[in-house]
Simulated scan of single mutants.
Amino acid sequence: MKQQVTDNGTERAPGEGGPLVTVDGLRKVYRTGPKEVVALHDVSFAAYPGELIAVRGRSGSGKTTLLNLVGGLDRPDGGHVVVAGHPVTEMPETALLELRRDVIGFIFQSFGLVPVLSAAENVGIPLRLARTPVAEREERVSMLLSMVGLEKHANQRPYELSGGQQQRVAVARALANRPRLLVADEPTGQLDSQTGRQIMQLLRAVVRSEGVTALVATHDPSLITLADRVLELHDGTFLPPPTP
């Protein structure tokens, strides 16, 4: 179901219930000596369970900064982020580590796979960190590799896989601990257009089947149509939604 826009321009997400992610008045400033660069200014939005949101904008518009703040990888200079009831912007680092382990899954442009480990071993890393029992871990890894279409490649290492296959492994790894939020920063940036679209379609299918929320930063206009909603950043601020 596509995103609806109310008469006053606010977004109404598909599905029922409250938002999984709430961002209110977010601001981030980078300082180099006396120079200041405002990366985000007064950014606010909500994201709901089962919703895939594409965050669009030119390079330098603030997409990565926004995702890093929502995912608790960086601290803002103002504003608040709440994920699954957790006040991300106020939490100590130890609590953020647990949040990133248990609630948020990350997918990066560079894949981030461990080269000496097989596909199955890469997917199982979060489960090992969570000390999941071996039998349960192996069952979950097998299911996830099947979900992303790589059940026959479980024992191959990253260098034996194509770029698209490596990103599928990264998607499976991000889902290992059953996160409620997926944060994907340009996940198709290193892939050709056809493979990139396949990865975006996979993410959309995962959102539906797993009931998670996904924030996906992308500059590829061909992928935007696969999202439930598009938020466009321009110089650190969201552009208003188009008039219906």
Rank of each mutant, 00 (worst) to 15 (best):
68 N>Q: 07
62 G>Q: 08
38 V>F: 01
112 G>Q: 14
53 I>D: 03
38 V>A: 10
58 R>W: 10
79 G>F: 00
119 A>M: 05
93 E>S: 11
39 A>N: 03
52 L>H: 03
80 H>F: 06
77 D>V: 06
49 P>H: 02
97 L>W: 01
123 V>P: 01
115 P>M: 15
68 N>F: 05
68 N>M: 15
122 N>F: 12
113 L>T: 06
136 E>S: 15
72 G>M: 13
106 F>G: 10
88 V>N: 00
81 V>F: 14
83 V>F: 04
104 I>D: 00
129 L>W: 13
133 P>G: 09
127 L>M: 06
44 S>Q: 13
67 L>Y: 04
144 L>N: 06
57 G>N: 05
51 E>N: 14
53 I>E: 01
88 V>A: 04
121 E>L: 08
130 A>K: 08
48 Y>G: 13
66 L>P: 01
126 P>M: 07
118 S>C: 05
70 V>K: 08
103 V>I: 07
144 L>R: 04
81 V>C: 12
64 T>V: 00
90 E>I: 06
85 G>M: 02
56 R>F: 13
110 S>R: 13
64 T>H: 01
105 G>I: 05
54 A>M: 12
70 V>M: 08
50 G>K: 08
80 H>C: 10
69 L>E: 08
115 P>K: 07
115 P>D: 02
63 K>E: 00
69 L>F: 04
67 L>H: 13
135 A>M: 14
96 L>K: 04
65 T>M: 07
50 G>S: 14
67 L>M: 09
52 L>P: 00
46 A>Y: 00
127 L>R: 15
91 M>I: 13
129 L>N: 12
133 P>L: 15
139 E>I: 14
37 V>K: 10
48 Y>K: 05
127 L>F: 11
86 H>N: 09
55 V>D: 15
89 T>I: 06
56 R>K: 13
110 S>Y: 12
122 N>Q: 07
142 S>E: 12
43 V>W: 09
140 R>H: 01
59 S>M: 10
68 N>C: 09
124 G>H: 01
46 A>C: 07
71 G>N: 10
142 S>N: 07
128 R>S: 09
138 E>Y: 14
120 A>D: 01
111 F>H: 05
108 F>L: 13
144 L>W: 07
113 L>F: 03
77 D>R: 10
117 L>V: 11
93 E>R: 14
91 M>T: 05
95 A>L: 12
122 N>V: 09
87 P>F: 04
101 R>I: 06
94 T>A: 11
60 G>S: 04
53 I>F: 02
80 H>T: 15
129 L>R: 13
62 G>M: 06
91 M>K: 15
